[in-house]
Write a protein that binds this DNA or RNA. Structure first.
Length: 817
RNA sequence: GCGAGAGUGGCGGAACUGGUAGACGCGCCAGAUUUAGGAUCUGGUAUGCUUCGCGUGUGGGGGUUCGAGUCCCCCCUCUCGCACCA
């Protein structure tokens, strides 16, 4: 009879839910392993990406448990955020109801896949019991001076009606809804992540088990740049402007200065400039340009301001321009332009006929043409640079910084692309920022004893007039904790990336009400040993979460510097060569697949088709193949139940022939599968070798008693090794034939090697023959065997062997003349 | 443009330390079983030729080596990320 997954799988799932075999406790006598998968947003349905992500984690968790590790394997919900609130606006139902319904449905789906979570540790970030600690962390940060309020031009999504972090507005569009992002001035709460920029950058060097591309993305995101701030006095006005440059060594070649069109100084300049109208026109034109248009073209556009600046080194008077390529978000929003040595400045100078003045000789003997065709960006030796002429760029940078600092008009400086993290969101479904505004006392933090500040229920979800929280009278009005007078609450909520920055610490003590988590539990369980998730979180979540770990460490709660030892970013699950999406109509639903092939087959196919980092194409035929394999194994059991149940003692030393070969294959497989899971996470090759073991087992003749005994053993161990991949089928098999599937088979290294090998004989590097030989033979014996071969002998006839290269147990190469 | 990674049969992929290229699976072909289909089982499946054999072959070209999918140099293509970052 075929393996009846639709009866067997639910039965085991129920048993696991009832008996909780995956519940864990701190136990210092055991080696711990913290296996974490990125928690899902409760959208209502899990998708194939989740299935893949969680299947990988489940194999590792189950495998290590079977090997005696104390494995922490939790699951929870990133449950705040805009979709639930948007749904509430449409349906009138409270976001909480949506969210809890969704979590319930998805929990069932995850249980249907047989994942080994300790469900008693489940968390939901929308639970006040959880977000109370977001608020607590916020207050702690405030105590340490790590949060501040500031009026800033921020990324505003008109559709979501909220502020977005830079990371959430990459490419000028909202990361959630893709609408075009606008700039808007708002009072916001900011977190000083830039205080940790240097450590976040340097820490990457201590993460050898993180993928190189993720580290590169983070380095780029942090964007450290060494250079100088230099102040330029404006001619005839008592004002100065500050530029940032990494090439102060080229300052004698600066022939103009450029400002970002939205630079604050522009307002003042236009007041006194003869070019007032032209400035206004240009600024309007730039503002009108969409971000897309701006990105599409690299054409340099500029406008003379009518104002001149004085180069502090040369005292020369140079024009100040507005330029489209200068970004207000970076450095000071102003640059000194050295067209001879910067390509952008060069293009600008060409277009507006500004002088180009070379001041660097990149290599000895280099001559400048009458007319440059492009900027010379290499460093070298300074010329025409006053007292600095003749020294190298490197030295000049240091000396010029010193001169600038002594003269009070500049200094060496480091800038970052990383910005402080704006966490205010003008939405309801998030953690309330625990702040009270009092007319007398000003900004007052909510005292710790009053936490959590809970989300109010008396709100209307109309989709109009900003955050729904503004409709709650009970929430808005409060009393000042300092003076007791009337006061109002902060109505902004936190970016949900705050929630997900530390959730895996809360799993340790999900219901603790005196602290976010227990310090000693954290000392035992952290860091996370393996973290699996999508590469789309390479910058945002994975930078924030590293930042939070450093914060919590500095609060005295953690003893680690980095949260995650090994990071794996799994590839996408695609269909018909494309990303699955509703609009393409190529979405594969996990529930349908479970119904069709069973959870075990779905899991096995997902893991078998590709190594984790790579993309994977969903194919029903592939899942069919996985099911076929499980079925074959199942049927072998049914046909040979006696020998499987017998459990005879085997003396490996006395084995011969087929029995010995199978025994050796078994131990080779134990070694290989263990290595593949532990060292490389190549679950595809682990499954392949299990298939190989089965293929040999099914081909083994069971006539002799010894062979049958070894086959029984091999079958039981095969099932044990299948347990992490296909836990339902393995559990049921173990139950039927009465053996324990909770332990990984013990490896006998002595038998994990074969006793013969194929000696490959090459002559001048070309394969001439393959000869079966005993393991461990020496070079002379190998040569003897080789020359005994007719084909090799024919090759050697009449020639001299000049060199013999013998690679033990593999190959013999004879170099002949 | 910059950064990271990848190019191996019809397809997904394997080859871990420079040592038998194509494990394992999908698909396909043939056979067995079956009234038939499906399922199952057995065998075959890189390619060329003069096919019990010989040669060629890991995107292209060169190099190092007794030996290269693997190491080095140049080029091409693709994927991902960033993108006027001063």
């Amino acid at each position: 009879m075929a393996y009846n997954f639709s009866e067997i799988e639910p039965r085991w799932q129920k048993r696991w839910a009832d008996e909780k075999p995956y519940k864990v406790k701190r136990d210092s006598s055991k080696k711990k392993f913290y296996c974490l998968e990125m928690l899902p947003y409760p959208s209502g349905r899990i998708h194939m990406g989740h299935v893949r992500n969680y299947s990988i984690g489940d194999v590792v968790s189950r495998y290590l448990s079977m090997n005696g590790y104390n494995v922490m394997h939790p699951m929870g919900w990133d449950a705040m955020g805009m979709p639930a609130e948007n749904a509430a606006i449409k349906s009138g139902r409270h976001p909480r109801e949506h969210t809890y319904d969704h979590m319930k449905m998805m929990r069932v789906q995850l249980q249907n896949l047989g994942f080994s979570y300790d469900w008693d540790r489940e968390i939901a970030s929308c639970d006040p019991e959880y977000y109370r600690w977001n608020q607590w962390i916020f207050l702690k940060m405030m105590e340490k001076g790590l949060v501040y309020r500031s009026r800033r031009s921020v990324n505003w999504c008109p559709s979501c009606r909220t502020v977005l972090a830079n990371e959430q507005a990459e490419g000028g569009t909202c990361w959630r809804c893709d609408s075009e992002v606008e700039l808007k001035e708002l009072e916001q709460w900011f977190v000083r992540i830039t205080d940790y920029a240097e450590e976040l950058l340097n820490g990457l060097d201590n993460l050898p088990q993180w993928p190189e591309n993720v580290k590169a993305m983070q380095r780029h995101w942090i964007g450290r740049s060494e250079g100088s701030f230099v102040e330029f006095q404006l001619d005839g006005i008592n004002k100065s402007l500050e530029v940032f440059t990494t090439r102060i060594d080229t300052i004698f070649g600066a022939t103009f200065v450029c400002l970002a069109p939205n630079h604050p100084l522009v307002k003042e300049i236009r007041e006194i400039s003869p070019e007032r109208e032209a400035i206004d026109d240009f600024v309007t034109k730039m503002n009108r340009m969409s971000r897309e248009e701006r990105l599409a073209s690299t054409e340099k556009l500029g406008q003379f301001t009518g104002i001149y600046a004085l180069n502090p080194f040369t005292k020369k008077r140079i024009p100040v321009y507005l330029a489209n390529f200068v970004l207000m978000e970076y450095g000071t929003g102003a640059v000194m332009s050295v067209p001879a040595h910067d390509q952008r400045d060069f293009e600008f100078a060409k277009k507006y006929n500004l002088p180009i003045l070379p001041v660097i000789v990149p290599e000895p003997g280099f001559r400048y043409e009458e007319e440059l065709t492009e900027a010379v960006e290499a460093t070298g030796v300074l010329v025409d640079s006053g007292v600095f002429s003749g020294i190298t760029s490197d030295v000049a940078k240091i000396e010029m910084n010193e001169v600038a600092e002594a003269g009070g008009f500049g200094r060496g400086a480091i800038t970052y692309k990383l910005k402080d993290w704006g966490i205010s969101r003008q939405r309801y479904w998030g953690t309330p920022i625990p702040i009270i505004y009092c007319d007398k006392c000003g900004i007052v933090p909510v005292p710790e004893k009053d936490l959590p500040v809970k989300l109010p229920d008396d709100v209307a979800f109309t989709g109009e007039g900003g955050s729904p929280i503004l409709t709650s009278e009970s929430f808005l009005h409060t009393t000042c904790p300092r003076c007791g007078g009337d006061a109002r609450r902060e109505t902004d909520t936190m970016d949900t990336f705050m929630d997900s920055s530390w959730y895996y610490y809360r799993y340790l003590n999900p219901h603790l009400d005196t602290a976010p988590f227990d310090v000693e539990d954290a000392a035992y369980w952290t860091p996370v040993d393996l973290y699996i998730g999508g590469v789309e979180h390479a910058t945002m979540h994975l930078i924030y979460t590293r930042f939070f770990t450093k914060l919590l460490r500095d609060f005295g709660l953690l003893k680690i510097d980095e949260p995650v030892k090994k990071l794996v970013t799994q590839g996408m699950v695609i269909k018909d060569g494309r990303k699955m999406s509703k609009s393409l109509g190529n979405v594969v639903d996990p529930d349908d697949m479970i119904q069709k092939f069973g959870a075990d087959a779905v899991r096995v196919f997902m893991l078998f088709a590709s190594p984790p980092e790579k993309e994977i194409e969903w194919k029903d035929q592939g899942a069919e193949g996985a099911l076929r394999f499980l079925n074959r194994v199942w049927n072998y059991g049914e046909n040979n139940s006696e020998i499987i149940q017998k459990k005879e003692n085997i003396d490996p030393e006395k084995l011969k022939g087929e029995a010995k070969a199978l025994f050796q294959k078994l131990h080779q497989t134990i070694a290989k599968v263990g290595d593949d899971i532990e060292k490389r996470l190549h679950l595809n090759t682990a499954i392949a070798s299990l298939m190989e073991l089965y293929n040999l087992l099914s081909a083994t003749d069971l006539e002799s008693q010894v062979s049958a005994a070894v086959a029984g053993l091999a079958y039981r161990d095969l099932i044990r090794m299948l347990m992490p991949f296909a836990p339902h089928m393995a559990s049921e098999t173990g139950r039927i034939y009465d053996f324990d599937v909770s332990l990984w088979p013990e490896l006998n290294r002595k038998f994990a090697v074969a006793d013969s090998f194929t000696l490959v004989v090459q002559v001048n590097g070309k394969i001439k023959d393959k000869i079966e030989a005993e393991m461990g033979i020496d070079s002379d014996l190998a040569f003897e065997l080789a020359t005994a071969s007719e084909r090799v002998a024919a090759e050697l006839a009449g020639k001299t062997v000049v060199k013999k290269i013998y690679i033990p147990d593999r190959l013999l190469n004879l170099v002949v003349k």
